[in-house]
Nucleic acid binder design. Sequence first.
DNA 1: AACTCGGACAACCGCTCCGAC
DNA 2: AGTCGGAGCGGTTGTCCGAGT
Length: 288
Amino acid sequence: MGRRPCCAKEGLNRGIWTAGEDKILVDYIQAHGEGKWRDLPQQAGLKRCGKSCRLRWLNYLRPGIKRGNISMDEEELIIRLHNLLGNRWSLIAGRLPGRTDNEIKNHWNTNLSKKVQDQMHKTPVKRPDELEPGSEMSKEESPSGAKPHPVIRTKAIRCTRVILPTPLIDQVADKATSVHNSNSETSSYSSTRQSNFSSDFLADFNIDDLLVSGEAQNLDSCFPLGGEKVDCYPSDFALSVHDDAEGIRSEGLENWRDDDEPFQPSGSFDFNSLASFLDSEDGYNLDE
DNA sequence: AACTCGGACAACCGCTCCGAC
DNA sequence: AGTCGGAGCGGTTGTCCGAGT
């Protein structure tokens, strides 16, 4: 069985694209439009994989692409959005007109992640189980940049291997299980829970199980957030249920459109108003 | 001038989702 | 309901280039 490979690897050009190849690709897409990437190389006469053509077009040749010179405003926005969304580069790129996910990802890996790390070392974060008894994780103790998030698939809306602090495991597990039981969809979570309850608990559960139900909002009670902050502690639970309680659902971000909001998926926006939005009660309180 | 090293970024790869059948 | 192919995503790798020695 097995599917047809996206392209035959033999006899194809690899590596950096030449100006000639770019021109062929642009001419073809201008004439025939995007799509049918698998067949495009053959139709256009390019010795490239279809996926490679798609990547080249989307990241470099498409009209309206900005290259380089990422401004301070953009960097700040990327950091904030990364704090909110984790490594969901395509969603982040969608909030930065003219920027591509690949460029933002590279910029993050080479520049911003270090910046954030530096900021973190200035304001170290305590895990909830490291806090003094009776103390709360105050906003001042949370870093503005936050730790790297676990990987979250953009489309799947699913947390894979979310690491939860031990004291929260049972509460989240019980809640997720009860939510799951009230839904008809299957979840890998239950079996995971049965098989793995170490202190470095790795939960594979379908975030939809938590999100589709109105009960999801009650999950706030599982986390010592005080209704203030997205992250319980940042690396532990990347996709906050709190977001959803505030009406910004993870899946909704992809289709998120609201004329009252300072930025839109593909539109222009004002950085200052966006910063205000992110800091506001209606936003995410991502700032320190 | 030659070499090494590290940063930046372009491209590739494997996985997943989703729609069509 | 199950399978398949198209498409998209994020992580990783490869390559280039400039700075330093």
